[in-house]
């Protein structure tokens, strides 16, 4: 690994998240990203260009990713057990790793009605690892108990292959503790205080006596790839995101 340089001062929050997600991906994995997932898409591309050259990236919306008929093939691949990693998000996430994508309040009289869970329930059970990414970090998002469960982190369904692996937010990374079956804090991003993370999370992060590490800054290699070939690919896959983050 090359040492980070002064250029890290200009690193933007989404770039830190992209790097954090990228580092969670392992060489050789089949990684799929769904709709509205620019951060995981960029992370998968970055991982492939850095530490995981044998990653297979299946990015929804990527003009270079050809399917035979349509995105339903991705569900067939998941059923066959070919997808290692998939990314989900939610409007509520609780300590047990449940996610809510459906509505807020009472199901029959919701205060907010959302698009719904789509394939989250099925995919979270059939892929080996789920990584949750969020674009905010506050107590309305990280709640003690979700109003509606679209996907569980783990359960005893006989067909389940894996479950929640990590949660990456704009402030930190969290890991799913498979023994306790709870989300615990793993690392905070450079420049973020532990107190800020705790204050903005609506459940106990299982810190206890642990010393929570600060995530290593982006390496020169990561930054070069991110600001070079990853940007170029993202410009075609997620043009609005590329414009927002990099002004492309």
């Amino acid at each position: 690994m090359t040492k980070p340089t002064i250029s890290n001062q200009s690193v933007q929050p989404p770039e830190v998240m992209i790097s954090a997600i990228s580092r969670l991906l392992r060489d050789g994995e089949w990684v799929a990203t769904g709709t509205l997932s620019p951060l995981p898409a960029a992370a998968a591309l970055l991982a492939k260009m850095t530490h995981a050259p044998h990653l297979t990236t299946l990015i929804y919306g990527d003009p270079d990713f050809r399917l035979s008929e349509g995105f339903h093939e991705l569900f067939a691949l998941a059923q066959k057990g070919k997808i290692d990693v998939f990314f989900l998000s939610g409007v509520q996430i609780d300590k047990q790793g449940n996610i809510n994508l459906s509505m807020l309040g009472d199901y029959n009289r919701p205060t907010v009605r959302l698009p719904g869970g789509a394939g989250s329930s099925m995919l979270s059970a059939l892929v080996r690892r789920v990584i949750i990414f969020t674009t905010s970090h506050n107590q309305r998002l990280f709640v003690p108990k979700v109003d509606f469960i679209n996907a569980t982190a783990t359960d005893d369904a006989p067909w389940r292959r894996g479950g929640l692996s990590h949660v990456v937010t704009p402030l930190c990374t969290m890991a799913f503790d498979g023994t306790k079956k709870e989300i615990v804090l793993e690392s905070v991003f450079p420049g973020v205080s532990l107190a800020e993370v705790v204050r903005n999370t609506g459940f106990d992060l299982g810190i206890g006596e642990r010393r929570i590490p600060i995530m290593n800054p982006l390496t020169d290699e990561e930054l070069a790839m991110l600001r070079g070939p990853v940007q170029e690919r993202m410009r075609r896959i997620y043009p609005q995101f590329a414009a927002l983050v990099w002004g492309l």
């Binding site: 297979t56 299946l58 050809r66 399917l67 035979s68 093939e73 691949l77 070919k82």
Partner: peptide, 8 residues
């Protein structure tokens, strides 16, 4: 003819 994607 039909196209078969590389994922298969």
């Amino acid at each position: 003819e039909v196209f078969v994607a590389s994922v298969h």
